[in-house]
């Protein structure tokens, strides 16, 4: 599957619109396997929509998305998704382990219940994100950073090849942010492809090796060293970025 030249994610001429208001204009994006890519752009640039379009959660007006040369529907099992933390109700009556096990639901398919094996995998994933001691904790009692780690564990338990994460650093403390970055880099080291919607331009070149600059249309995408330039940033943010350190 991971032959040289194959593409983990291939977005071609993707346009997404709400009524006649375009949210994404004719996006092309090729993500090779084994890169850690961040999508950056101003608010309303369509970052979340792009992730959702790749996952088939919003219907494109034009264009296509391929995951390892096949449409998403055929590749659900190898794609892990981390939605925004605020997208769910954390007062839902369930505990940490249960939420993490949800990551196995796709592999289980309809009707089949999670069992001992799923429990084991979920506990291992919690171990990886440093949340094993919280396994039986009610989810409403978690801090923001802990919630984010639970969501990450839920994606890890899928044992996917491609990960799509929507703002995993939002509202987490510095310790959690470092822990998440280490985890992402571990995933990449294991040959996974990780796409992260990111907000903090300061950390792009430290955390990621690829970047996509997005503002409704694609400004640029590629290795950070090549495309994370002041010119591209100015084009993306419309001259609102005054002081930026770029490159390493």
């Amino acid at each position: 599957m991971e032959t040289a030249g194959s593409k983990a994610i291939e977005v071609t001429d993707l346009t997404v619109a709400y009524q006649d208001k375009p949210v994404l204009w004719d996006i092309d994006l090729n993500v090779p396997p084994g890169v850690l890519l961040s999508i950056v752009g101003p608010n309303g640039a369509g970052k979340t929509t792009l992730i959702k379009a790749i996952l088939g959660l919003v219907r494109p007006a034009a264009g296509s998305v391929l995951i390892y040369n096949k449409p998403y529907e055929a590749q659900r099992q190898i794609v892990g998704y981390v939605p925004q933390r605020g997208s769910v109700d954390w007062d839902f009556p369930t505990n940490v382990l249960d939420v993490v096990m949800m990551g196995r639901y796709g592999a289980l398919g309809w009707v089949r219940r999670p069992g001992r094996q799923e429990r084991e995998l979920a506990l291992q994933a919690l171990e990886k994100v440093g949340m094993a001691v919280y396994a039986t904790r009610q989810i409403s009692q978690l801090s923001g950073g802990q919630q984010q780690r639970v969501f990450l564990a839920r994606a890890l338990v899928q044992d996917a090849t491609v990960y799509l994460m929507d703002e995993p650093f939002q509202g987490v403390d510095a310790t959690t942010e470092r822990a998440i970055v280490t985890l992402l880099q571990e995933l990449r080291a294991n040959g996974k492809t990780v796409v992260v919607v990111h907000h903090d331009l300061q950390t792009v070149s430290d955390y990621f090796d690829w970047v996509m600059l997005l503002n409704i249309r694609r400004i640029a995408s590629g290795p950070v060293d090549e495309v994370f330039t002041p010119d591209n940033l100015r084009e993306t943010y419309g001259g609102r970025v005054a002081f930026m350190k770029t490159g390493k």
């Binding site: 659900r76 109700d89 949800m102 639901y105 796709g106």
Partner: peptide, 22 residues
């Protein structure tokens, strides 16, 4: 009873339910 898992997932996190094909 039959769709307990599906009901739980779709109620807690509808977008993940959709992404996983439920």
């Amino acid at each position: 009873f039959v769709f307990y898992k599906e009901l739980k997932l779709a109620t807690f996190d509808a977008s993940l339910a959709a992404a996983l094909g439920f």
